[in-house]
C-alpha cells in the first residue's frame, strides 16, 4: 500500500517534466523503498550510493557552516543527480537530463519530497 503510494508520487514526478529520467525513494540506511529507474541501473547500488551521498552532504553542509542540508546536486556529462531528504527517514533521488531546467525540477522535487514525507 505504502509502496504503491510512493510509486504513484514518483510516477507523477517523472511525468511532471520531460527532463526527469528517473526517480527513487531510498531509506536513509540505503535501502530502496520505491523506484522508477531505467532497466540498466542496479536498485541496491542506486539506493546505497544515494543515501551515502546525502549523508556525506549533511556532514559537509554542517562542517562548512552551510546550515541544514536541502539537497545534493551532482552534474555529469549525461545529466544530473539530485538528492534531497523526504522526511527524516528517506531520501528522494532524481536523475535528470543534461539540458534540464533546474529551477522547475527543484520545485517539482520539493513538492514530491513533501508528499513522500507525508506518506512515510
Amino acid at each position: 500500500m505504502r509502496s504503491d503510494l510512493l510509486t504513484s508520487i514518483l510516477s507523477d514526478l517523472n511525468g511532471s517534466s520531460a527532463d526527469i529520467e528517473a526517480s527513487s525513494v531510498i531509506s536513509t540506511d540505503g535501502l530502496m523503498m520505491a523506484a522508477m529507474l531505467p532497466s540498466g541501473l542496479d536498485e541496491d547500488r542506486v539506493g546505497a550510493m544515494g543515501a551515502a551521498m546525502l549523508s556525506l552532504g549533511d556532514r559537509t553542509a554542517q562542517e562548512l557552516a552551510r546550515g541544514s542540508l536541502e539537497q545534493v546536486l551532482i552534474k555529469g556529462d549525461n545529466g544530473y543527480v539530485l538528492m534531497t531528504h523526504a522526511g527524516k527517514e528517506a531520501v528522494l533521488s532524481v536523475l535528470a537530463k543534461p539540458s534540464a531546467r533546474l529551477g522547475l525540477i527543484f520545485l517539482d522535487v520539493k513538492r514530491a519530497a513533501e508528499a513522500i514525507s507525508k506518506v512515510l
Binding site: 535501502l31 541496491d44 539506493g47 546505497a48 550510493m49 543515501a51 551515502a52 556525506l56 554542517q62
Partner: peptide, 17 residues
C-alpha cells in the same frame, strides 16, 4: 564518524557492491 554514515548504511553499501 567523519562522514556521518551509519554502520547499517555502510553495510548496505558494501552489500550492494
Amino acid at each position: 564518524a567523519i562522514t556521518g554514515m551509519s554502520r547499517v548504511l555502510f553495510n548496505n553499501l558494501a552489500d550492494a557492491y
